[in-house]
C-alpha cells in the first residue's frame, strides 16, 4: 500500500504539457525519455441525417500520466533483482540503480508504460514521485509546475476525496494494479477497457507518448 498518490483534474487540464517539461528539466531527461506524459485522446464523428441536420459526437480530452505508484505494483512483483522497490519512508515506487540489471521486465509489465530501460545509464528509469521533495513536505515538480492546478499530490485519503481511482480510457481498468492516481474526469471521458474502435477513439499523439 502506498502512502501518497497523484490527483488529476480532467476538467482543468489543457494538455499544455508544462508538467512533462518541468519533469524532464528537473530530471535532466534527453530525447526519448519522459517520466510524465500527456495522452491526448480523441474520436467521434460528425454526421448528416436524412433531413440534412448535422450532428457530432466528437470529443477530445487529455490525461497526464506518470508512474501511479500502484498498490499492486506489477513492476515490483516481476522485478528479478528487487531493484524496483518502495521507498521505505514515502512508499513511492523507486528504482535502485545500483541493483537494477536493466532487463526491462518492469517496462514490459507496466500497463501505464511508466518504467523504461535507459541503456546508457544501465538501468530502468521512471518517476519516483520526487520522493526527496516529498520528504521535505514539498510536492513533486510536475504538480508545482501545472499552471491550471490540474495536478495534485498528497496522501491517499486526501486524493480519494478529490477524485475516483483512475479508470478512464485510454488507461487500463483499475483492477490490474490499483493505481494511486485519482481522477476528476472531464465531461467527455470514456470508461477504461473500451472495446477497440468504440466511437472511433484513439490516442492522437502516439509518437509523443508510446
Amino acid at each position: 500500500m502506498s502512502t501518497y498518490g497523484f490527483y488529476f483534474d480532467g476538467t482543468r487540464c489543457t494538455a499544455c504539457k508544462t508538467c512533462v517539461y518541468a519533469c524532464k528539466d528537473k530530471n535532466d531527461l534527453g530525447l526519448g525519455f519522459a517520466y510524465r506524459k500527456v495522452f491526448e485522446y480523441t474520436g467521434g464523428s460528425t454526421n448528416r441525417d436524412g433531413g440534412g441536420a448535422i450532428s457530432t459526437d466528437c470529443f477530445a480530452y487529455s490525461v497526464s500520466l506518470s508512474c501511479n505508484h500502484c498498490d499492486d505494483a506489477v513492476c515490483i512483483e516481476v522485478c528479478p533483482t528487487a531493484a524496483m522497490h518502495r521507498d521505505p519512508e514515502t512508499e513511492l515506487v523507486c528504482v535502485d540503480a545500483k541493483v537494477c540489471i536493466g532487463c526491462g521486465y518492469c517496462a514490459l509489465s507496466c500497463p501505464y508504460r511508466a518504467p523504461k530501460v535507459d541503456r546508457e545509464k544501465g538501468h530502468s528509469v521512471k518517476c519516483d514521485g520526487c520522493h526527496h521533495l516529498v520528504k521535505n513536505d514539498e510536492a513533486p515538480v510536475c504538480v508545482l509546475a501545472c499552471p491550471t492546478r490540474a495536478l495534485g499530490f498528497g496522501t491517499i485519503p486526501d486524493m480519494q476525496a478529490k477524485g475516483e481511482q483512475a479508470n478512464i480510457a485510454p488507461l487500463p481498468t483499475k483492477e490490474y494494479t490499483k493505481p494511486n492516481m485519482f481522477i476528476k474526469p472531464s465531461k467527455d471521458a470514456l470508461p477504461a477497457a473500451l472495446p477497440a474502435g468504440t466511437n472511433n477513439a484513439f490516442i492522437a499523439n502516439p509518437l509523443e507518448v508510446l
Binding site: E77, P80, T81, C100, I101, C103, G104, K121
Partner: peptide, 18 residues
C-alpha cells in the same frame, strides 16, 4: 538483453517472487 550484464547475478534476488 541486459543493460548492465555485470550485475546479472542480482537476478537471483527475487527467488520465489519473480
Amino acid at each position: 538483453h541486459l543493460a548492465t550484464p555485470l550485475n546479472a547475478l542480482n537476478a537471483l534476488n527475487g527467488v520465489g517472487r519473480s
